[in-house]
Design a protein around this nucleic acid. Structure first.
Length: 297
DNA sequence: GGTAGACCTGGACGC
DNA sequence: GCGTCCAGGTCTACC
């Protein structure tokens, strides 16, 4: 008999809208189940992996159904992971501030962008999304879970830290990212990545950005993206997709450098929230073409 | 400080 | 089925 958890969420939380708000909801071990409108995932808890199905139980209420009984300690771990993934602890005042700056998303209530249960997973996912097309990112994450994850869960930093480059390259197909991912995992294991400091609102964005650039495999785009995953939305993550958005949607012309300059100027009025303004603009554009994300198969 | 070229994978395309 | 080309950020060497 598995454990069933009841999880409190903000009153305006909508599972389908807020999970299907960023591509990571399609990366292993996460899977959005369209017919049931639930998130299926696998957590690596202290006593072993556990499959979970997370559903909306009502306004301000989620449930997590686990395929095995999980201890009190594991329940606390699971709650922390779920809270991080869904940004349940992100202050409602912050969302209101975003909507005040960019009222386009006020009626729909959008603004919580899905992320991973751990910072390490967010960083690895970001690195595996660099210099590769989306199907490549999907494959790398699936293989990382299959080859190195316990029971199909996302691999822990300790496991990745002792993996061999040949395994990562040959079986996980991460290519030249092999040694970088191992070095990154070793930094996490050695305690060289201070999550408390990175998440502390008192730490300036610029300091966080500078630190993230020192991580192996993390350049300007990845650092900016990891910042939004940390809840710091003041930077645009400049990649080919953003430049395309500038050209085709915003109508900017010129060289890539000129377009990037125009993009920065365009989003400047959104201040501390500019990533979310850009991202939701682009996400709703995807949905206009492909239908609502919570219906994507 | 700016830039060219290498780094890999996988999909598209032509033969 | 095979070869070629291309897209996608990071990193290093070099100017």
């Amino acid at each position: 008999m598995g454990t069933r958890l009841s999880i409190a969420a903000p009153a305006d939380y909508r599972l389908a809208r807020d999970v299907c708000s960023y591509g990571y909801f399609r990366l292993a071990p996460d899977r959005w189940d369209v017919p049931t409108q639930t998130l299926h995932t696998i957590f690596d808890l202290s006593e072993g992996p556990a499959r979970a199905i997370i559903a909306q139980a009502g306004p301000g209420r989620l449930t997590g159904a686990f395929d095995r009984g999980i201890s009190r300690i594991e329940q606390r771990e699971a709650r922390q992971k779920i809270s991080r993934m869904f940004r349940l602890n992100e202050a409602e005042a912050d969302l209101a501030a975003f909507h005040a700056v960019d009222p386009r998303w006020k009626d729909s209530g959008r603004g919580r962008i899905f992320r991973s249960p751990t910072l390490f997973q967010d960083v690895v996912r970001t690195i595996t999304s660099c210099n590769v097309t989306w199907p490549g990112t999907v494959n790398m994450n699936r293989r990382l879970c299959e080859v190195l994850g316990r029971g199909g869960a996302f691999p822990r930093e300790a496991r990745l830290a002792r993996a061999r480059a040949g395994t990562l390259r040959g079986r996980c197909r991460v290519g030249y990212r092999d040694q970088r991912l191992i070095d990154l995992a070793r930094m996490f294991v050695a305690g060289e990545v201070d999550e408390g400091w990175l998440e502390n609102p008192g730490t300036p964005d610029e300091a966080v950005y500078k630190f993230l650039l020192t991580l192996p495999g993390v350049g300007a785009y990845a650092a900016s993206n990891i910042m939004q995953l940390l809840g710091r939305y003041s930077r645009l993550a400049v990649d080919s997709e953003l430049v395309r958005h500038g050209r085709s949607t915003l109508g900017f012309a010129g060289s890539e450098r000129q377009i990037v300059r125009q993009l920065h100027a365009h989003y400047e009025p959104f201040g501390a929230h500019k990533f979310r303004s850009y991202w939701l603009e682009m996400w709703t554009e995807y949905e206009a073409k492909l239908g609502p994300a919570h219906q994507w198969e």
